[in-house]
């Protein structure tokens, strides 16, 4: 009976762990392996060569793609944080009834349970050549011919990503803020702290774990993006994810794998950097 109690957790956790072993660990090991293989023009063949990596690091086009991806990550991160912090603060501290907090949070959540592709498409009537934005600007006399850049541009890519991913920043910050002891804020108020001081000394430091988790989500989601980049830039902008997709399209598995390995390493580096600030197991 004692033995059974000891072995029970392993049996319970085995099926899920098997899924991750088979469909996460082994695939990533396979990517790593194939990244050293050769591409023979139409298929891949086993080898051990650094050529794929050398090709990436010596190509200005590839490096520009990486820089473009980092640019998207940085901009989207900054904007989602600037939106999420006040939204989460409003929900956690200004909305005082739990029922309303749940209702308003659900209002924010529902769009995230619908299709990303549809949500991207839904920007076409706004950003298109004859879209609402251009029509408004022309009616106001700001410009006398439609601006082509709204749809199919980096602007559209960033806008769509913020639209798609901001909840991933809001939810963890909201979660952290809900755990802040209201007595701390009341005590600070009684001691004569200004609103700004309360933000800076109490709420912001205690919201850091939420910000860290949100940032991990944003970094991971944007780093591997290709659908938004493809659709919203009309193929004019690029990202590492899009590059990998294109290489798979022409069957260049070893090159795609090498790019994937670099993408993974950079992502992990960023995530570990963020994790130094926070112990996520405490947040559950």
């Amino acid at each position: 009976m004692k033995n059974w109690k000891n072995i029970q957790p392993y049996l319970l956790v085995a099926p899920q762990t098997l899924v991750f072993f088979l469909f996460l660990v082994i695939p990533i090991a396979a990517i790593l392996m194939v990244s050293f293989w050769e591409f023979t023009g139409y298929s891949m063949s086993p080898a051990f060569t650094w050529d794929n990596y050398a090709a990436i690091f010596s190509s200005p086009v590839y490096l520009a793609t990486y820089i473009n991806t980092f640019k998207f990550v940085a901009i989207v991160w900054l904007i989602t944080l600037a939106i999420a912090y006040p939204i989460a603060y409003f929900l956690a501290f200004h909305v005082t009834s739990l029922r309303w907090q749940i209702v308003l949070f659900l209002i924010c959540t529902i769009p995230f349970l619908t299709s990303n592709i549809i949500r991207m498409i839904s920007w076409i009537p706004f950003l298109g050549r004859e879209g609402v934005l251009n029509q408004t600007l022309m009616a106001l006399g700001v410009t006398n011919q439609p601006i082509e850049m709204f749809l199919f541009s980096d602007f559209a890519v960033v806008l769509a990503m913020v639209h798609l991913y901001s909840l991933f920043m809001i939810a963890p910050i909201f979660n952290s803020m809900m755990r802040i002891d209201r007595a701390l804020v009341a005590a600070a108020e009684d001691a004569g702290a200004s609103g700004w001081q309360i933000q800076k000394e109490i709420i912001l430091p205690l919201a850091v774990p939420g910000i860290a988790i949100g940032s991990i989500f944003i970094v991971t989601l944007v780093m591997g993006e290709f659908a938004t980049v493809r659709l919203m830039s009309g193929g004019q902008s690029s990202s590492v994810g899009y590059l990998i997709r294109t290489q798979i399209g022409s069957l260049q598995y070893p090159m795609a794998a090498a790019n994937a390995v670099i993408l993974l390493l950079v992502t992990l580096l960023l995530v570990f950097g963020i994790l130094r600030a926070v112990d996520i197991r405490k947040e559950l």
């Binding site: 762990t17 996460l24 082994i26 695939p27 990517i31 591997g224 794998a257």
Partner: peptide, 23 residues
């Protein structure tokens, strides 16, 4: 096991797709 599970969220989606495809 906890971190293995979490890491599945951190690995960019395109890698999962590519890796399973290769396997």
């Amino acid at each position: 096991i906890f971190y293995l599970t979490i890491s599945s969220l951190i690995v960019p989606s395109i890698l999962v797709s590519l890796g399973i495809g290769i396997v």
